[in-house]
Every structure is written in C-alpha cells, then in structure tokens.
Nucleic acid binder design. Structure first.
Lengths: 182, 182
DNA sequence: TCTGAATTTCAGAAATTACTGAAATACGGA
DNA sequence: TCCGTATTTCAGTAATTTCTGAAATTCAGA
C-alpha cells in the first residue's frame, strides 16, 4: 500500500471497520482513500494506492456507487472516470442514513405489513408484537422523513440544543405553541 | 423448522436480514423466535423450532447476549436457562442504537482522535477532513447521549411532532426561550 | 463428593463471500 | 469504421465465516 503514514493508518482502519459497516474491507479502503483526497482519483490510482487488483477496484467502485457514496467526475481531455466523495460531510451522513434505511429497515416494514394483511392466525401475542413493531418502525421512518426535509443548519441547531431539548418540549407545550400531540 | 406459518415467515425474514444487520442468519432467526414468543424459551426449544444444532444455538445466544438483546431468566424448579426479549420495544431500540454506536462509531472516533494527536503530517487537506469528521461524529454522539437521557414518552412526543419541529425551532428562537445556540 | 443434565468449547467440514487474472465489452477519437 | 485505452464481467481460487458433532466443562441436587 503506497500511502503516507496518516493515510495508511486511516485507510487500514476503514478497511477493518468495513465489515461492521456492512461493506467489505476493500470497499472501505477505497472509500477512505477517496475521502482523504482533495483531487478526484481514477481507478488506476486507487489500485496502485491500495495494492489490489484492477478488477477488485472496479467492483468496489461499483458497490460504492450503488450506495451513492461516491461521485463520478470527468476531467477535460481525459476519458477515464474520476471519483470523489461529497465535500459536505452532512451530505454523506444523509446518504448513509437513507441507504441503510433502504436496505435494513424498509424491507422489514414491507414484510410486517404483508404479515398483517394475512389476517389473524390464532397467535394473538405474536400478532400484537408484529403490529407494535410495525408501528414503531413507521414512527421512526416518518421522523426520518421529517429530519431529512430539514436544512442542515436547522439540523445542526437541533443537535446542538442538547439538554435544552427536553426542557423545550415542556415550555412549548405549556405555552401551547401547537395542539396536543396525538 | 417447526413453526406456524406466521412465525415461519417472520423468522425466515429475520434470518435473511441478519447479514444486513451485522449478525448471521441463525442469530437473526433465534432473535425472531424469541421476539414472537410470550413465554421464555430454553436452548433446546429454540434448537427444535429452528432445526439447527444445539451448539449453534448456544453460540447464537452467546452472540445475542453480547449485544444485550436477550434477557436470561430462570424458572422455578428448572435449572435450564430461559431467554426472552424485552417487552418494551423502545428499550430494544435503545439497546440497538447503543450497541451499534459502540461497535461502528466509537472505535472510529478513537482512531480519529489518535490520528489528530500525532500532529500535522504535511497534508492539510486530509488533516482538515479528519478533524471535520471527528467533530461531526462528536456532535452526533453527544446528541445521542442527550436523546438517550430522555424518557420514552418525551422521545415519542418529539418524534410525533413531525413537521412542526422546524417551525418550532423558529418560533422558540424568536421568543428567546433560550440563549443563541453556539 | 458423585451423578447426570445443561451448556460451552473447539476442530474440522460446509457454505459463503471476496479477490484475481484473463477475456469480453465499451467507447472516444482518428 | 477502426484502433487503442478504459472498464466490466466472470470463472476459478482464496479467504473468511458459519455450522456441526464430539468432547470438555459446569453445576445443582443427591
């Protein structure tokens, strides 16, 4: 791996974490290299930097593209594909959350609804448990939709509010700034 | 797999999703069986229900315990271990978030701090990128800490607020309910 | 302490996932 | 169109993860 010490350490860490994040080592490393590089990189550069096969790089980039985690760019007078990560880290977070939801949550929500559609099967505990889980996931996904609609500045504002958030719910409720939450 | 249709469908789904959730199929299935069962189950019952080996069940339960996702119980006059999932789904969500943070986020935060400790290495773009990432993760983990401190009722209230949340930030700011957020 | 049921450990087998090199395909410019 | 470079595909191999059965360990009660 042909990288400066700082990059190397960072890249190896992302590789190790990859499996915990649901991607493989190589994909994690490719992302790490792109993340630290100001200039867009082409597949050949990534291959050299990481010391992996060209085809592995190709597959890794495909995977990252399916996650919407890299952007494809073209440089004038060069027909190779160059890749970058978004400059805005909040953008990256939004993408990550959206993709994980799509892969890890949505299919289960669909399945739960499908199971409920089949009507009572004679195990009321299990049925109640499934309904409760479906409701919970719906609430969370709706909340995610709302947060997603918010501009980054607002989101940061919300997150930095910290412990004031609880107090706020109190005060505003007393002030009747909105109708009673269901 | 000796299960009623509803259970079977649910369990198979959790098995398939397991790999996306960072656990394996068997662990997902064991969890699913426990989740739908009102009564605590022992390892033998799980083994029979899923048609897997006894040792596999043992390892799966160990894994689930390391995730804090199952509770061990003992029935009077029976020295076998019985397992359940928490009744409260919000409790499950809290655990999941906490455990994923512990496994997927915290090690990276540690690594980023470690990299920054080593001081400037001559690549100011990469260094800025690392610092920015560290700050973002810190903000999110602090926010998580705050949310975690909140009672469930409050949390539900916050989540059901939906689009009112943005408006609220506005109004309260105008009303000067607190000092300017940094 | 001994006994037997319950549970865990672990080495090897099975299954799955990742990676490579070679071949095929895509595609811009002449 | 053809040429040459860039990229992707894919079959075979390597590496990793999961699972099993047998052996070892734990532990409550006699």
């Amino acid at each position: 791996m042909r990288l400066a010490a700082l990059h190397k350490d960072f890249v190896l860490h992302f590789g190790e974490m990859g499996s915990r994040w649901g991607i493989n080592r190589t994909v994690g490393q490719i992302y790490a290299v792109l993340f630290l590089s100001e200039a867009p990189l082409n597949a050949e550069q990534i291959t050299t930097a990481l010391g992996i096969s060209r085809s592995n790089t190709s597959m890794g980039l495909k995977e990252l593209q399916s996650w919407n985690l890299v952007r494809l760019r073209h440089l004038e007078g060069d027909r190779r594909d160059y890749f970058t990560t978004p400059d805005d880290l909040w953008e990256i977070v939004r993408i990550l959350v959206a993709e994980r939801r799509k892969r890890e949550i949505d299919p289960t929500l669909t399945k739960l609804r499908e199971l409920e559609m089949q009507g009572p099967q004679g195990d009321s505990y299990a049925e109640a448990r499934i309904a409760e889980l479906r409701e919970l996931i719906e609430m969370m996904t709706q909340f995610h939709d709302e947060m997603n609609r918010m501009e980054t500045e607002r989101l940061v504002q919300l997150m930095t509010m910290g412990r004031k958030l609880g107090t706020l719910l109190d005060k505003t409720q007393k002030l009747n700034l909105w109708g009673k939450a269901k």
